[in-house]
């Protein structure tokens, strides 16, 4: 699915990623854990093509297409979806309008007809009820005045509507209560199948109690220093990260 090779990236001339190698095959869920400032969110942003960051070397490929130089929207259309850590508000732009525009941009790219308003609405309503959200959610402005939980649920609603190939969850579990956490996990589990991949960036084990990862990566100072199974998560919860430092 996604192959990252020797990726180095910087912001304002400060190098953050110092050679990331990583591959997530279709059907797998990978997790990245690490301290604050280790470069986890930078990696998520660089995968999505955020132009605030400069890629200094290395490459990112989606299904053998090199996307390192691709624009943000073309990567999105190639199947990359970022669940934002802090989704931004866009006042006056309705959720339904935004979501349908996004969906139809993807459908157009895939050579499909645009989805009409009615079909879209029925789809969206079904997802909303699974997320425990009211239909009126669609009439609100994007993330405008949303609670923390609503913002994250809105991201999951978009994930399930757009149905991308790779979902990158940037600390989606931060600041959620148990119920909201379960709802988010339920959404991610509904999304994942053998044809797509998930990359979860998190500080905590709690989301991983609901979503079982295939591979866990530990990141320190812009590098992946350890990869393994769920037992790594337990070790970090118990011992922190200092044992990884040489």
């Amino acid at each position: 699915m996604i192959k990252i090779k020797n990726l180095e990236a910087s912001i304002d001339d400060k190098t953050i990623l110092k050679g990331i190698d990583m591959e997530i095959p279709a059907g797998e869920v990978h997790v990245i854990m690490g301290r604050n400032g280790s470069g986890k969110s930078t990696l998520a942003n660089v995968i999505a093509g955020n132009e605030a960051y400069e890629v200094d070397s290395g490459s990112i490929a989606m299904n053998d297409t090199d996307i390192t130089e691709m624009s943000i929207e073309n990567r999105a259309l190639e199947g990359i979806f970022l669940c934002f850590q802090y989704p931004v508000a866009i006042p006056g732009v309705g959720m339904a309008y935004f979501l349908r525009s996004a969906l139809n941009a993807h459908r157009k790219h895939q050579g499909k007809d645009e989805m009409d308003a009615l079909e879209f609405l029925n789809n969206a309503k079904a997802i909303l009820s699974e997320l425990g959200l009211d239909d009126s959610f669609l009439k609100r402005s994007i993330n405008d005045g949303f609670s923390g939980g609503e913002k994250k649920k809105s991201e999951i609603l978009q994930l399930l509507t757009i149905n991308p190939k790779l979902a990158v969850l940037d600390e989606t579990d931060s600041g959620l209560d148990v119920d909201a956490l379960r709802t988010v996990a339920k959404g991610v589990n509904k999304f994942k199948n053998e044809n797509n991949s998930v990359l979860i960036i998190t500080h905590y084990q709690r989301l991983l109690n609901y979503i079982k990862p295939d591979v866990v990566h530990l990141m320190i100072d812009g590098k992946i220093v350890e990869s393994g199974d769920m037992s790594l998560v337990e070790k970090v919860e118990k011992d922190g990260y200092s044992w990884l430092e040489k």
Binding site: A48, G49, N50, E51, S71, I72, E73, A76, L77, F81, L82, F84, P87, V88, I90, F98, S101, A102, A105, H106, H109, Q158, I162
Partner: peptide, 8 residues
């Protein structure tokens, strides 16, 4: 960035 990331 948010809009672009959604393919817009």
């Amino acid at each position: 960035f948010y809009c672009n990331q959604r393919g817009i």
